[in-house]
Write a protein that binds this DNA or RNA. Sequence first.
DNA 1: TTCGATTTGTTGCTGGGCACAACATACGGC
DNA 2: GCCGTATGTTGTGCCCAGCAACAAATCGAA
Lengths: 404, 404
Amino acid sequence: MHAGTVRRRHDTTAVNPRAAHLSLALRHVAEASGQISRADIAARTGLNRSTASSLVDELITGGLVKETGATPRTRAGRPATALALRDDGPAGLGVDVNVDYTAVCVVDLTGAVRYKHVVAEDQRGHTMAEILDRINTLSRAAHAAARADELTLCGSAIAVPGIVDRDRATVTLAPNLGWRDLAVTEVLPADVHGLLDNEANFAALSEPGLLRARASYLYVSGQIGVGAGIVLDGHLYRGTHGWSGEIGHLTVDRDGPPCPCGRRGCLERYAGQEAILRAAGVSSDPGTALGVRPTITLIADRARSGDTATLAALTRAGEVLGATLAGCLNLLDLGHVVLGGIYRDLAPWIAPEVEREVATQFLGAPWARPTVEVATYGPEAPAIGAARSVIHDVIGDPLRWLNR
Amino acid sequence: MHAGTVRRRHDTTAVNPRAAHLSLALRHVAEASGQISRADIAARTGLNRSTASSLVDELITGGLVKETGATPRTRAGRPATALALRDDGPAGLGVDVNVDYTAVCVVDLTGAVRYKHVVAEDQRGHTMAEILDRINTLSRAAHAAARADELTLCGSAIAVPGIVDRDRATVTLAPNLGWRDLAVTEVLPADVHGLLDNEANFAALSEPGLLRARASYLYVSGQIGVGAGIVLDGHLYRGTHGWSGEIGHLTVDRDGPPCPCGRRGCLERYAGQEAILRAAGVSSDPGTALGVRPTITLIADRARSGDTATLAALTRAGEVLGATLAGCLNLLDLGHVVLGGIYRDLAPWIAPEVEREVATQFLGAPWARPTVEVATYGPEAPAIGAARSVIHDVIGDPLRWLNR
DNA sequence: TTCGATTTGTTGCTGGGCACAACATACGGC
DNA sequence: GCCGTATGTTGTGCCCAGCAACAAATCGAA
C-alpha cells in the first residue's frame, strides 16, 4: 500500500478483506516479478491455495496480471504457472515542475518508464499561467503517448520544489517558483485525479528496489537546498504535516556562517549546491540561466581533471553531509542511504566521504554496517517517482482499478 | 495495534477480519473511554450497527469491556448504553532494570497503575545472578498483588538500559549492567511471555495521551545518556534493528569536547547528566552510590535557590538540547516533544529553553507551532510503559486473550 | 396524556468469501 | 509404466458482515 493516499493514517476504519487480499496477492506478484505462482502466493500469505487462485483469477481478468508460461521445473510435481504484472494495463503520469526544467513521464504497472519528456527552460522567466500551460501541454502529450502504447493512465502526480498540502492538493509554498496556495493539479487531464508532493519525497519513490525489497532508507536529494525522503518498510514516511525530510537546515556548526533561514551553520551552507560552487571557486551567479545541471557538470569536470580547490570542496561537503546523515541514521535506525540529486553526479568524490563518516558514526555499525548507494535516476527521479506513486496506489488498492 | 510485537513488519500476510474488527472496536472503546456506545463504534468505523453490536458483545463476554449505565440523554431517541474498558480483566507486568534501581508495576486494561514497587539499590555492587534473582522476586510479588486485586497478568515486559534484540528476547549489550547476550526475560513467571525493549522506548509508551489521541511525538529521556522514543501515530517506531532514538551522540559541535564514543561534541557532552553536573560545579563522582536521582534533585535545589553556575549550566543544556531536538523535529516532521527522565525534574529551567529553540528552528513553525511538554511520569516511566505495552498488545489482538 | 419522531440495540435472513477436502493435472524418479 | 509429489480447480460448509425489520426508550408537540 502506498503510504500517501491510501494511508491508514487512522487505522480506525473497517477492513475490507477482499480488497486487502487482492492487494496482497498483487504485491507479491510485483515483488517477485515473473518468478511466482499461485501456490507461492498461498504459501507466503497464509491464504488457502484455492483462495489465492481466486484472487489471481480476478487480477488476471481485471487486466493487472498475466500468466507467463511455466516455470523452470526443478522438483517433482506439476510445474507451476508463473505470474507477472501486465505491462499494458494501468499506467501513472508523473510531472516534475522544477526551477529550471519541467519533466513528464509515464510508468507502467511493472515500474518501467514508458515515456519521458523533459523541457529544460528556466521557469523564473515565465508567468505562473505560462508554467501551468506548459504542464498542461506536456501532460496531454504524455496522455496521447500512453494511449498510443496501449496504456491506460489511471492517475497522475506532480512533484514540486516546496511545501505542499496533500489533502487539499495545494502547493502551500514554493519559493523558487513564486507559488503560494496554488491548486496546481487542476491543470491535469480531468480523468486522472492528481496527487501532489515534494520533489525529494517522490524522488525517493523512484528507486527500483523499493517495492521488491520492502526497503528502508534515507534518500538524500541535493539541489539548491538539501532534502530527504524517508522510506520505511517500503512506505514513504511523510510526517504529521507532510514536511518530513527537512535536513538542509540541520545545524552543523552553531557558530558557522549565517543562513538565509535565520540560523547559522546549516547543512546547506556546507553541502548545498551554492556552497560547493563557492568553495570550489566557481561563480554561482543566478543570472546565468539554466543554472543547476551545467554548473554541477562543470564541477564534476573540474574534479575529474584534478582541480585541488574543487576536490577539497567536495571532500569537505561529503564529510559534513556524511556526519549529518550519520546522525539521521542514528535517530531513525536506518542502515541505508541513497545519494540523489547533485550528489549522484558528484558521487565519485562525495560518496566515499559519506560512507566513511557514516561507517564511523553510525552507532549500530558494529552489528550492522550501513551502506551508501548512488541513486538510480538523476534529474528525472522526481517525475519517475511521482508516476510510480500512482502505480503504488493501484497496487495498494487494486479494486478501484478493477471496478472502474 | 501495538507497533512492536503484533507489528505488521511485513504486511504480507493474510488478514483476519474478525480479529481486526475486534481490535478496532476495543480500540475505540479505549480511546473514548466511558463516552462511547455501540452505535458510535458503528458510525466511526463504518461497520454496520449489528456488526458493532456483535463485536461489543464478544468483548463483553470475554471480560474486556463492560456497560456503564446510560449516557446523559441529550437528543431525542433511545439513550445509548455507554461502554468502558473493564478494570478487572487482563493486566500487564512491567519491569525496569536500571543501574541504580529496579522497578516493577502492574497496569490494568484501562491503563491505570494498580501496583508499583521500586527497589533503589545500585546494581553495580551485585552479580548478574543476584540481579536476576531480584527481578524474579519482585515479579512474583507483583504477580501475587495482581491476583489479589482480581487481575489476570497476561504478559510482561522488561525495560533495560541498553541494546536489545526483541525477536530473540535477548539483551545484546547493556554496558552499565555488564550484560551481553542475556535472555533476561527467562526469569519472569513462565505463564507470561516476556517482551523486551530499551528504557527510552518503553518510557515513551508511558504517556497517557498516547492511545487517546493517536499521537505523534518525540519522547526525550535524559539519563546518564540521552535517548529518545519515537512515537508515530500512536505506535512506537523502533527502526530496522530496534535501535532508533539514539540522539545522545548527535553532533552538536564537530570541534567540541571529546566523547567516550570516539567522536567530539556529542549532545551528551552538553545536555547529559554528567555534563550538567560538571557545568554546575557539582562533583559527579560515580563512587557515590545511588547516583542519579539525588544529584539531580541537588541540581534542582541549587537552581531553585538561584545558584548562577547551576542556572547557566541548565540554560546552556536546554539550548543545546532544544537545538538538537529542533533538527529531529525537522527531519521527522513532528510537532510535539515530551521531556522525560532528568529533564522532567529540571523542566522549570530546561523546558523554556527547549521551547524557544524549537519554536525558532522548527521549519514548520509558521504553520504549526511545535509544543513542548513535560513527561507525566518520572523514574517509573519505563516500567509503566513496559506494562502498558503489554496492554497495547491485548488491544491490538484481543482474540489472543478471548480464546486463551 | 398521547402520539409521532428519533435514535439505539437486537434478530432473522442473505450473500460474499475463505477454508477444507477431494480431484484432475503434470511433472520427476525408479 | 507406476508411484510420489506439487500445482491448480471444483464443490461444500461455515463464518461473518450487511441489510431490513422490529422492539425499546426517550423527546417534543398537540
